[in-house]
Structure formats: C-alpha cells, structure tokens
Amino acid sequence: MLSQWGFVLILSAIAVVIPVAAIVLGHFLGPRRPDPIKTDVYESGVETIGDTWVQFRAQYYLIGLIFLIFDVEVIFLFPIAVAYADLSFFSVIAAVTFVIILLLGLFLEWRKGALEWT
C-alpha cells in the first residue's frame, strides 16, 4: 500500500518541477527592463493610498469557523460510509443522530443570522 504513495510522492516532485521550470524559463527568456512605475502596485492607474490592509468583515472568520466544524463532521462520516455495508440498523441510527445534531447546529446559525451576508 505504501508503494502507492510512492507514486504520489514522485508525482508531487514532478508537479513542483513543471511550474518552477516554466517560471524560470519565462524569467530568462523575457526582456528585463524594470522601472519604478512598472513594479509599482497596480490599482487601475490610480496611486494606492495607505497600505493594502482594509477593514475586513468578521463574517469571513465566522464562515471559517463554521466550515471547520462541518469539515470535522464530514471526516467522521467517511469511515462510517466505508463500513456502511456491515453496520446494524442501530448503528446507522447513531450515525444519523450525529448528522441531525449538526443539522440542528446549522439551523441555530440560521436563526441567529450567522449565515446572512449583508
């Protein structure tokens, strides 16, 4: 089984080499005439005011948190799905309860307006 991952390892090495080679090749083939305007930040021809940081919504962070929780849930469902054929009806009900508890969480988020993006 580990040798299968050997293929993944070798493929990942090749997958790194290809874009690096392309970028290095482009770097040497292309012309090089740097000037301060060219290497300046692009903002549709307007000079940037202040630093790049702008006020971000906390909503992004909330989405990240909700995602994390559902991601963990999905991870737990996968082994159950693999073992599904030899589970008893009771076990399946346990798995379903697991999903329903999280569905409750989703509706809680919904009620509290955490899913609104205004």
């Binding site: 790194v16 874009p19 970028i23 083939l29 301060p36 300046d40």
Partner: peptide
C-alpha cells in the same frame, strides 16, 4: 507569447509568498 513576456515582480510584494503561490 506569455513565455516571452517580461517577468515583473512588484517592488512591494512579499517575494516568498508571491513566487510560491503560482507553483
């Protein structure tokens, strides 16, 4: 054509993440 284009790196870019991202 893209291969023959100039390779511009913005002066204020963070070199490590800027170059690593496309790879």
């Amino acid at each position: 054509k893209l291969l023959s284009k100039e390779d511009i790196t913005p002066a204020s870019a963070d070199k490590i993440s800027y170059l690593l991202a496309p790879v």
